[in-house]
Amino acid sequence: MFVLHPDPFLLPAYRISPFQTMHLAQNAALETNDFASAYFDQRFGKNQWQYTLNGREAIRLALQNYNLQPTDLVTILTTSENFYISSCVTKTIEAFCQWNRTLSSATKLILVNHEFGYPHPEMEKLKASGLPIIEDCCTTFFSQDVQNKVGQYGDFSTYSFPKFFPIQIGGLIVANSGYSTSLTSQMSPIEKQYLEKVMSYYLMQSSDLLSQRKANFDYAHQAFQSLGFSLRFPKYDHVVPSALLLNNHQQILDLPLLKDYLAQHGIQSSVFYGEDAFFIPCHQNLCRADIDYFVEVITAFKQQTIHG
């Protein structure tokens, strides 16, 4: 049994991020460890990466390299080609110049958002255009394409740690050939030390993390498929989604109302605006009972809206 319509002061807290309250104490108690630096040196190249406060700052630091003027145009492209894009991205660009969603003769720079962990399918074609590229890999830390080149197509790639790890801050900017990472982050030395030890701890467990994420995703996929929902993107072995993005198939007529209902039950979610789809948490720190709770809450909402 799960309690529905709980007292607002007794809500559970299910986030898109795997961070939970217990990780405050757990992360604070970790011992100093430099595994993360060695990992990033091997993966991205020594002196080619640096920590940032978050993914937004990583994008900002990348944009600073292009001498953008207020009238310049950055074109944002996403995996789905839907117009949905986080305001974290658009507001960061607006501090420099204008943005749009379609390539044109006025495009000075392409920002590719590898969406929900799913790589953009036409990176080779975009690279062949000759335009500068920034790859937004904030939801694509573990995912790759068949060429194993995600994060290497552009001048820069940017990452956000809380999308995959139980941590409250942290990101990464990676500079590819011809660029330097000697960019000024607002991160303090103590924050950098914290990031290093926490990321070291979780990166050392990445195999178990990925195994549990996959098991939870597969279980959730089957559970919601039985309710008539389907995955918005196909499953690929080399893709690690950042959330469970579901096609609604017009089963729920008011998805914004569902979002509110889920929040009233402690579940972070959002509508995939512009499509008949929505997304909910699906990460390594869930158990099957948590996913069953999501199913029961959404089932209750469907029944409530059907019967009034």
Score class of each variant (00 low, 15 high):
residue 34 D to C: 13
residue 245 L to I: 14
residue 165 F to E: 01
residue 125 K to V: 12
residue 197 K to N: 06
residue 159 Y to S: 05
residue 22 M to H: 07
residue 95 A to D: 15
residue 271 V to P: 11
residue 292 D to K: 13
residue 219 Y to H: 15
residue 144 Q to Y: 00
residue 129 S to Q: 11
residue 52 T to M: 05
residue 171 G to P: 14
residue 184 T to S: 13
residue 254 D to R: 14
residue 248 N to W: 01
residue 136 D to H: 05
residue 298 I to C: 14
residue 62 A to C: 05
residue 98 Q to E: 10
residue 116 F to T: 00
residue 6 P to W: 07
residue 160 S to P: 03
residue 24 L to Y: 13
residue 101 R to K: 13
residue 74 V to R: 12
residue 173 I to C: 04
residue 203 L to C: 12
residue 220 A to H: 06
residue 11 L to T: 03
residue 151 G to F: 07
residue 136 D to G: 01
residue 33 N to Y: 14
residue 122 E to H: 06
residue 87 S to V: 15
residue 37 S to W: 10
residue 96 F to C: 00
residue 134 I to M: 07
residue 71 T to Q: 12
residue 185 S to D: 02
residue 205 Q to C: 00
residue 119 P to F: 05
residue 203 L to Q: 15
residue 66 Y to K: 00
residue 141 F to I: 13
residue 264 Q to N: 15
residue 190 I to K: 15
residue 90 T to S: 12
residue 222 Q to F: 06
residue 291 I to E: 07
residue 186 Q to M: 08
residue 142 F to P: 09
residue 189 P to F: 10
residue 148 N to W: 04
residue 239 V to F: 04
residue 84 Y to T: 06
residue 271 V to D: 00
residue 231 L to G: 01
residue 175 A to D: 05
residue 100 N to E: 11
residue 155 D to S: 07
residue 284 Q to W: 09
residue 46 K to I: 15
residue 100 N to V: 06
residue 23 H to D: 13
residue 59 I to M: 08
residue 199 M to R: 01
residue 10 L to C: 03
residue 60 R to T: 06
residue 200 S to Y: 05
